[in-house]
Nucleic acid binder design. Structure first.
Lengths: 119, 119
DNA sequence: TGCAATACTTAAGATTCTTATGTATATTTG
DNA sequence: CAAATATACATAAGAATCTTAAGTATTGCA
């Protein structure tokens, strides 16, 4: 089995929105820093979302109506919680479906799996 | 099952080199236009490599010593055949392995599959 | 008390793609 | 047989998305 320390940035490119939307769809409510840490933990450090990539993406998703925010004070520090909207939930489903289909196509194209059937 | 006409460009981003190298590794000798058509056919049009993306990538791979070229005349028209080098073969294997690992990680992260084991 | 972790923001630069344009030959079709 | 389409290459401008970097400030720990 191939072990890799961290994926080349090209690979993760294009999946960031999918990851964020899906995580918020399944977990309900999260703040930015929490997202980076959760993804890092769940992937054993293989996917590390940088802050420079995360926050602009969160802002874009909010502006687009797929996420909503509520600020909360933890002591003196602001924390911005994100929740997914109805529209965001729909987008999340679509993006995951597209990704699943993409994986199937790539597996065939790269000849990774024996082609079982056309189902 | 989800049917999609063509993937959003973000998804394919980052897999172009992997696709090209692997195809040349398995098929031996191909020219640029042939690569675009083969990928289009194999993916039922879901992945369409544009020429603006293909040729610069081929040139970069050649410059990097992963591909070698030989020109051939088909009538009056030049055709540039690409073959993979030893170094390119190694890179192809690495990139495919990384992609397979990436798929596994993403499936877990997106909760697409039931987690069977940690193998 | 100083360093690491938490928590957010934004700007500059790199990479990789799309879109567009250019050139030219070969084939098909009305 | 002329026009449209397909084949075949190349490259430049612009868009999108990420990395790197720099800034600000609070909190926890050794």
């Amino acid at each position: 089995m191939y072990i890799c320390p961290m994926y080349t940035s090209e690979l993760i490119k294009g999946t960031l929105k999918t990851i964020i939307l899906n995580l918020l769809k399944e977990r309900g409510r999260m703040y930015g820093y929490e997202i980076t840490q959760t993804v890092k933990d769940m992937t054993a450090g293989k996917i590390q979302i940088t802050e420079g990539a995360l926050y602009p993406t969160l802002h874009a998703l909010e502006k687009n109506g797929e996420l909503a925010t509520e600020e909360e004070y933890i002591g003196k520090r602001v924390r911005k919680y994100y929740t997914i909207t109805e529209q965001g939930t729909q987008t999340a489903t679509e993006k995951v479906n597209e990704f699943v289909d993409f994986i199937r196509t790539m597996k065939f194209l790269l000849d990774i799996e024996p082609r079982v059937s056309n189902a």
